[in-house]
Write a protein that binds this DNA or RNA. Structure first.
Lengths: 155, 155
DNA sequence: TTAAAGGGTACTGATTTGGTCCGGATTGCC
DNA sequence: GGCAATCCGGACCAAATCAGTACCCTTTAA
C-alpha cells in the first residue's frame, strides 16, 4: 500500500490540536501532553513544520509555536512535503538524473511525473481545516468530493 | 516523500514491455531479458499481477503471461493495488479498528479516508496506455493535466 | 513420459523509519 | 546581569519494512 509516514499523521494531529485554544503560542511539551504523543517526537515534527514555514516559532521563555497561516490556507500536500520531503511516488523523476538503472529501456520517466502531478493535485485539494472538521459518517461531500467511478471501493 | 515500492515501478516496465510484440504469451525469462530486470523479480511481479486478474497466465510448456485487458482498460491504481496492496496512505482507516493508539484523541480517521479517495481517483485517471505513450519533453498536456496552482513546483 | 512453465512459501540482507538524546543558541523574567 | 525556559540542529540507535533470491510443487503441452 502507498504509505504515508507516521510522522505526517502525527503532524496533522498536532496541528489540529493547535487550532484549539486562544491565539497564544503552544510549547512542544504542552502539545505532547494534549495529543498523547512522545514529547521528543512532537518537537521534531514542529521543527520540520517550522523549517518549511508552516509554523511560526518563538524562542526563549514563554516562547512556542503558532500556525503560520489560517487552517484553510494550509493543505495536506504542504504538510506531507514538510515532513516527508517532496511528493514523488518513484525515484524515477526529473530530479534524479542517471539514478535509474534501466534508464535506456525506460521511456516512462515523464509519465510517472504525470502521475505525481495528479496525486499532488489531489492532496492540495484538502486543507488542514478539512482535516479538523469532524466527519459525520460517510456523508456525500457536497462540493469538495472528487468524482469517483463506482468500482473504486475494490482498490 | 510518498513512496511507491520499486516493484510497482518494475511492474509498469514489464507491462509496457508486454504491449510490444505479437499477441502471443510472454515467458517470465523473456520479459526479464527484455527489461534488464532480474528474472526471479519479474516472475514475482507477474504472479502478483496474475493473482489480481491483470494478467492471464497459461501453465505448462509453451505457456506464459498475457495482459488480461487492453492497455487503456488498466489503470495505475489497479497496478499499485496488485503489487502493494490496497491504496491507503495511513493505517488510520476504517479497515483497522483499534489499531490507532491515540484513537480517543483522533477524530480524523474519516478525513484521511477523504484524502485516500482523492489520491485513488487521481491514480485511476492514468491508464497503462498513458504510461506507455512516449512523452515529449515537458509538454503542457492539453487535456489530461490537472489544474495546478503556480506554487506547486515547490512541493 | 518428459520438460517447460507458472504457483507458492520461506529466508536473508539492506534500506528506511521512528524515536531518543545531547549540547548549543535565544529570549523573557527576577 | 544572571537564570531558567524554550527552541535549534545535529547525531545516533533499534526496529520494522522491503527487495531480492532460492527452493520445491503443480500444471500442461509436446
Amino acid at each position: 500500500m502507498i504509505r504515508l509516514s507516521k510522522l505526517t499523521d502525527y503532524a496533522v494531529v498536532v496541528m489540529t490540536a493547535m487550532m484549539q485554544g486562544d491565539g497564544g503560542p503552544h510549547t512542544a511539551v504542552s502539545l505532547a501532553e494534549r495529543t498523547g504523543l512522545p514529547a521528543p517526537t512532537v518537537s521534531k515534527i514542529l521543527k520540520l513544520l517550522a523549517r518549511d514555514g508552516l509554523m511560526a516559532s518563538h524562542r526563549g521563555a514563554a516562547g512556542g509555536y503558532r500556525l503560520a497561516r489560517a487552517p484553510d490556507a494550509i493543505n495536506v500536500a504542504q504538510i506531507i512535503a514538510a515532513i516527508d520531503g517532496p511528493i514523488a511516488l518513484t525515484d524515477c523523476v526529473e530530479g534524479a538524473p542517471g539514478a535509474c538503472g534501466v534508464e535506456s529501456l525506460c521511456p516512462r520517466r515523464g509519465n510517472w511525473d504525470r502521475v505525481n502531478r495528479a496525486v499532488r493535485g489531489a492532496l492540495e485539494g484538502v486543507s488542514l481545516a478539512d482535516m479538523a472538521r469532524p466527519m459525520f459518517h460517510d456523508p456525500v461531500l457536497p462540493k469538495t468530493a472528487p468524482a469517483l467511478p463506482a468500482a473504486a471501493d475494490a482498490i
